[in-house]
Computed example of a mutant assay.
Amino acid sequence: MARCSNGLLGLLNAGVLVLALAVLGGGIWLSHRAATTDCERFLERPVIALGALLLALSLAGLAGSLCGASCLLWLYLVALFILIALLLVFTAFAFVVTNRGAGSVVSGRGYKEYRLGEYSTWLQRRVEDSENWARIRSCLRDGSVCQRFGARGESLQQFVTNNLSPIQSGCCKPPTGCNFTYQSETMWVKPSGFNATNDPDCNTWSNDQRALCYDCQSCKAGVLANLKNDWKKIATVNIVFLIFLIIVYSVGCCAFRNNRRDNSYPAWK
């Protein structure tokens, strides 16, 4: 039983090694494909960094547990402890900043509309930053979300009963309060003599398919609504991953004690 923890730690890290190779391979694939959009360039570096980190940790854990390298195993445990702490902080932060914000139900409509002021101040600052929003807007355009949405060719009655995604509702159409005339999903006619309303998005809206409502406050709110849903899913996955890491850390501590005991035990005994 004395070496059971070492073998178990080696087995767990072998699984992490396979995961690391898969993540790293995905990041390298992203970097070598035709990465012409900001979205692809934004994704590839974090994926490669995560894969490299998991690879280094798994190799250190394997060497420390199976080869009896106490110094290497100690460094592995320190790095693992820091990773656990960072994941705990990120998970708590994700739940806090996504606690506020929800779409507003529109009478007679199947979709919701989103307002930027309903979300946390930290999230609002992220999308109100001009450089950040330029990258996000590029992702929305390159992703052709509104172009696919506008190709449905639905009637007004069909359109108003749709359960639109936050981005479709906020970025691909004007706010309902503007009272524009429906032509198609992404084509709306301003009424004659239209004047500015209390909603600046009504003036921001454009029938230019490259513009639409990408600079609207409602679009930024739609992006945050989508981000909120994604972060909550990630935070939930993080909790499961944290439980796994804590188990690995506990087994690693047992393996470290085994290594120290073996290294300090006199050979003649």
Rank of each mutant, 00 (worst) to 15 (best):
L140Y: 05
E154A: 08
A151R: 10
I136T: 02
S120F: 04
T204M: 12
P200I: 03
S184N: 11
G143Y: 14
V160M: 11
L116C: 01
T204L: 12
G193N: 06
Y114K: 02
V106A: 07
S169L: 00
G103Y: 03
N132H: 10
G150E: 12
Q168C: 07
W205H: 07
T186R: 13
G193A: 13
E185V: 00
S169G: 03
C146K: 02
S144T: 13
D129G: 04
K112Q: 13
S192V: 15
R152P: 04
R137Q: 07
W133I: 04
V160Q: 14
R141Y: 13
S184E: 06
C146F: 10
N163M: 10
N203F: 10
E154S: 08
E113V: 09
T186M: 12
E185N: 01
L164W: 06
F194N: 11
C171G: 01
C178A: 08
L140W: 02
P200C: 00
F159A: 00
S184P: 09
V105Q: 14
F159V: 03
Q157Y: 05
S169F: 00
N132G: 07
G170A: 01
K190R: 15
D142E: 12
E154R: 12
T121A: 14
N132T: 07
E128R: 09
T197M: 07
Y182S: 04
V105F: 11
R152G: 02
T197Y: 08
T181S: 14
S155V: 06
N203S: 15
D199T: 10
K190C: 08
Q157H: 13
K112F: 08
E113T: 06
R126M: 10
R148M: 14
G193Y: 08
G101F: 01
G177Y: 03
L140H: 02
V106R: 05
R141Q: 11
S120I: 02
R100F: 12
C139D: 02
G110Y: 02
R141A: 07
N163T: 14
L156Q: 12
F159L: 01
F159I: 01
T176M: 09
A102V: 12
N162D: 15
N195G: 13
Q158N: 01
L123D: 06
C139F: 02
G103C: 08
D142I: 08
M187I: 15
E154I: 09
S104L: 12
A102W: 10
E131C: 05
N179D: 06
